[in-house]
Every structure is written in C-alpha cells, then in structure tokens.
Computed example of a mutant assay.
Amino acid sequence: MSALIKHATEHWHHVAPLLNKPETEDEYDLLVSGLDELLEIIGEDEGHPLNRLAILIGDAIEAYDHENRPMPVASGVEALRYLMREHGLNQGDVPEVGTQSVISEILSGKRQLNLRQVRQLADRFGVPVEVFI
C-alpha cells in the first residue's frame, strides 16, 4: 500500500463527510459551514492547497441546490425589479433602460425591454443577458 493511500485510509473518517454528496438538509448545512470555514482560510489565494477541496464542496452544494432547491422562473421585469431593490435603486437610477417614464412603463408591463436595454442591464449588474429575456 502506498503512503498516500495509507494516509487517506487513516484519515478518511475525518475527510469523508466533506466529500460526500449531501442527501439531507443536515449534511447540506455541514457542507455549507465547512465551505465557509475553508473560504476564510483560503481567502483570495487560488493556489492555496485547500482550494481544490473548496471547489469540490462548492460543486456538491450546487448540485444539491439544483436538485432540491430549483430556482423559480422569473421574467426579465421581475429580475430588473429585484436587482433594483437589492441595489437600492429607483427608476431614475437606471439610465440604461431610459427615462423614468420608460422604466415605469416597463415595470408596469406596458412596455417590453429591448435588446439594447437588456445588454446594458446585463453589463451593469454583471449577469447574463438571459436574466432579462
């Protein structure tokens, strides 16, 4: 048996909970907490030896979310409304869309976002254009 496998075998019971796909909310919560701790240790250092473990845990969390907590489908207007609220913006703070009256018509459903507006909003908020389509 190689030294690597010997060490892995000796410490597996400590590491296994971090590498298993979560099947319950408790296991999910354990991974989220573990990832939070790892990210505090790693910081911005992508070359940190624990970075790969953080990526694996993040992937397991994402898979669980995808399977158990699907994202609700939202319209482009709902996404815009949400992003404006999250960023503390009012209708006058989004010139990418147009004048305040244009924004009001879009938010009330009287007008659709056009492609130019969608692209500019995606750039401003750092999200894919599909969010607004």
Rank of each mutant, 00 (worst) to 15 (best):
R116M: 12
D36Y: 13
A8M: 04
P72M: 14
P128S: 13
D26Y: 05
L89Q: 06
R81M: 05
G88L: 04
L80P: 02
D45H: 09
A122K: 09
G88P: 00
R81L: 07
G98D: 02
L30Q: 03
P17S: 10
E44F: 15
E130N: 05
I57L: 01
T9H: 07
W12C: 12
D29H: 10
E78W: 04
E27N: 04
E86C: 11
A79S: 11
L31T: 01
V129N: 09
D26C: 05
E25N: 10
A74K: 13
P95I: 08
I103M: 15
V127C: 11
A63P: 00
I42M: 02
L50M: 02
I133C: 08
H14T: 08
I133V: 13
R116I: 14
E23C: 13
F132H: 01
P49F: 06
E37C: 12
V15I: 15
W12Q: 09
L4M: 06
N51Q: 04
L80H: 03
P49Y: 04
H13A: 15
L39V: 12
L89A: 05
N20A: 15
V127R: 10
M1F: 06
E23L: 14
I133W: 10
A63C: 02
V97R: 03
T99L: 13
L30F: 12
V15D: 01
S104V: 01
V77S: 00
T99P: 08
G88Y: 07
A79R: 09
L39C: 11
D26K: 15
N51K: 07
K21C: 03
I41D: 01
G43Q: 06
D36A: 14
S75H: 07
